Simulated scan of single mutants.
Amino acid sequence: MNSSVREDCLEAVLTLVQEHQRPVTEREIDEVVEAASSEVTTAVRVLAEEGYLRNEDGGYLLTPPGHDAAEVVLRKHRVLECFLHEMLGMDVGAASKEACILEHAVSDEAIDRLSSYIEDPHGDLPPARRGLRHRRGPRAAACPVGATPNGRRPLLDCSEGETVKVAVIQCIGRNRRLIDLGLIPGREIAVRRKLHNNALVVGVMGADIALSPEVASTIFVERTG
């Protein structure tokens, strides 16, 4: 069985269950995994036999080991997508597709190092990397200070019930937790609640996430569509 299809199926179940809040069918998994239906069927069956998936109400849910394995794959995807988009300037869609390919081959160590690099892209680098940093030049978009580009506004200015798209996160590396939660440029989010202390509760990929005022103030959004 192709290991990449196996990992794609785990990631698909994790994201689909988060989105729909129910068990997901093999057909739904097949619709989002870019592989032959026969490969998806085999992967789902084997994952269930190995204890990574369980049947419930005609669909599939992740078991605790399955959830842990899926989170590893999803984290790789999010870190790679963020790095390709924020640091290398790739289009969000292209970055996501490339991340889907790379996530199956990249090591955990490489992901940890990439995540650390995103956290401090202008810090001290090994000698071999300094030339790369110089050629790339300053990345103002990765860490904008103060200014809000045309059509963009702070997330804190949004009203309850609005659905918007993340445009820029100031110094995204300092908020590494946002990457792990899927809050990255290009992602649609819904403003669920605004609390009295300016904290926000936002919906991201089917999950509700609480953001402190300090973190929310670093996020700038734009209209969807």
Rank of each mutant, 00 (worst) to 15 (best):
T163I: 12
V73F: 05
R6W: 00
C171E: 05
Q170V: 10
A147G: 05
R130V: 14
L155P: 06
P65R: 09
A99S: 13
G182Q: 06
S217L: 07
C143W: 07
V79A: 04
G225Y: 01
V73T: 11
V164R: 06
R135Q: 07
P213Q: 05
L178G: 01
E26W: 02
I189P: 02
A199W: 00
I179N: 05
E98I: 10
V73S: 06
A94D: 09
N150F: 10
D180R: 15
G161W: 07
D208T: 13
A147I: 13
S115L: 13
L195Q: 11
I219D: 01
E103Y: 09
E50A: 14
E214A: 12
I101F: 07
V79Q: 03
A36L: 09
L16M: 11
L102W: 06
V204W: 02
R133Y: 01
I209E: 06
V221W: 02
D157I: 01
R192C: 08
L178D: 01
A70Q: 06
R78W: 05
G93V: 08
K194F: 05
V5E: 01
H196G: 14
S115T: 08
V204Y: 01
S37P: 02
L102K: 12
D120L: 14
T163R: 15
D124N: 10
E28Y: 08
T25G: 11
P149L: 13
M205G: 12
C171M: 03
N2E: 09
G186E: 03
G146H: 09
E160K: 15
E109Y: 02
Q21K: 15
P213T: 06
